[in-house]
Structures are given as C-alpha cells and as structure tokens.
Write a protein that binds this DNA or RNA. Structure first.
Lengths: 145, 145
DNA sequence: ATAATATTAATAATCATTCCTAATATCAAT
DNA sequence: ATTGATATTAGGAATGATTATTAATATTAT
C-alpha cells in the first residue's frame, strides 16, 4: 500500500543541514531561517520548518523539546542531555552519559509503556551567572527554586 | 526596595486552586478554564492564566514544562517526575524518587551554574498502547501481504 | 470616607508553528 | 527529449497557546 517516498536532497534541505552542522549551538527554527537566508535569500520560513522535520525523520538531526516556548534543533542525532540557561535560554550539551537503566526502575510500577526519557538541566550560563550575581538575586532565585 | 505585594485569595483564585487540587490529572490552562467555567461562568481565560502564575509564585502549585506545545499544571508543588503519552498527551506521575545527586556529576564539568533538572519519561498510556499495537500489527499485515 | 492598590472581564496582540495553494523542479519511463 | 507522476517550493493565511492592554470593580489601609 504505502510505497516509500523518495527523498530529494534539495539545495534548501542541504543548506539547512550544513548550517546546522556548522553551528555549535542549538538554534531555533527562526534562528536557522535567518542564517540560511544569508545564502538563500528567497527561502521561506515554512520551507525551513518542513525540512527540519524531514531531516529529523531521516535521522540526520534531532529536535529538542526543552522547557520554554520554542523548539530547538541539534546537529547531533545521538541521544544526549542538555543544559538550559534560565535567564537567556541558551542551550549547551550536558557532560554526562545517558542513563540507560532509568526506564527499568519504572518497569512494573506504571501502567504506561515506557519507551524513553528526556533529562534537562537548568541553570545559568557564565554571562547570566555574572549578571545575576551582580543583581544579587541569584541566591534568592536558588532558594526559591 | 521591592515592597511585598499583598495577595488576595479571591473567589476566582480559590476556585482555580480547588479545582486543580480535586483533579488527579495534570490539566492545561484551557482545561482548567473549562472546568472553572462550570462554577464561575463569567471567568475569563486571562484570569485563569494570571492566577495560575500567581499560585505558582505562591508555591501552592507547579507549572510543568514538558514536551509538546502546551504547559500543564500540577496540584502538587513538590518535586517529582512525570510520564507523558506520546500519542494522546496524557500525563501521569512517574513512580520514581527524585535523583538528588544528578547535579553533582556535572559539577566542574560545565561552565554553567546548575541549579536543578527536569526528567520526563515518554511512552504510551494503556489506551494508546492498545491502539499502537493494533496499528503496527495492521501495518505488518499489509507489509507482509 | 478616601486614596491606593489588587483584581477582574473582555479583548487585542504576540509568538511559534502549521497549513494551504499554486507554481516549479526533479525523476522514471517511455 | 517528452510526458506524466510526484516532491518541493515560496508566500501567505490560519491556528493555537499564551501574554498584554484597558477600563471597570473590589478590597485594603489610612
């Protein structure tokens, strides 16, 4: 019935992938759009969104669903964790190995079929740590966390 | 100096809190709005959003930033983890104790100031597990046809 | 009672994302 | 190369969740 869809590696798709691979950050679709526009000024935002989804389906990148309102994209499709700055939203990789045994602890304890987990660390990036310290609100924020 | 704001426990605020405490699920702002409207038909959606934020600031409830597009609210302000159904979005508590030592593993390994983490399990609720099983067996049947 | 502040309902505005459509590009098979 | 089928595109409209605005009302402190 459903014959396999042939994928084309269009210029737009390739450019999006290349740009994502070049940046070491974890940009949002809109940030990627702005970067790609420098090379392809006529590309549309919808094309960026659509191709990011295609690249995810192809297993070449991954979509990050972290806290906050926006989704980010990661050139690295392998499972790993992230740290997010609560002040500026910046995202970095978390230097900790995946916890592969976590699901086992839930086995038999929940009616859900568990197939994975997401772990996200929250904190402040160096810049925002300084800013917050100067405002001397960091201590309060941590206490209230 | 920021003088402390006096909080009023208005009927709207109290009703929102009570309804959230009565439901054992993890409703979205909109779902709470629909429930509260049965008691206070003239309440506005904005009032629900504003009061949910106030209740979070008061430490009486917590806001959940899970995967997907919507935010959910939890009558239980204490730290705990959740399971989310990838099919229908339903959320349940995860029967696993908080991992209090996790942050220690990052100490010295990142330039971020880590102050916490969020852990979310992904899977399928019982209903959707059934549906997915039927779908995949159907798919297999078609493919093997 | 008066003044200051908190809260509300209603609505508009915003933001990220998805959807729609007609035009264009590419591929497979003549 | 031509045709037909399908994938992809640009542009813009639509959606959905959330936030902001505003004028009216309610509560609190003096």
């Amino acid at each position: 019935m459903p014959e396999k869809k042939t994928r084309r590696m269009t210029l737009q798709r390739k450019t999006i992938l290349d740009i994502l691979r070049q940046t070491k950050s974890h940009p949002s679709a809109d940030e990627i759009y702005e970067l790609v526009r420098k090379q392809l000024p006529r590309i549309s935002l919808g094309t960026v969104y659509r191709n990011l989804e295609v690249l995810v389906k192809m297993g070449l990148i991954q979509k990050l669903e972290l806290g906050g309102t926006i989704k980010r994209f990661d050139w690295n499709p392998n499972k790993h964790y992230h740290i997010r700055c609560l002040c500026c939203g910046q995202v970095d990789d978390a230097p900790i190995a995946p916890l592969n045994k976590l699901e086992d602890e839930l086995y038999g304890a929940t009616v859900f079929s568990i197939i994975g987990h997401r772990l996200e660390f929250e904190g402040f990036c160096p810049d925002c740590t300084k800013k917050e310290a100067e405002k001397s609100t960091l201590k309060t924020k941590i206490e209230n966390f």
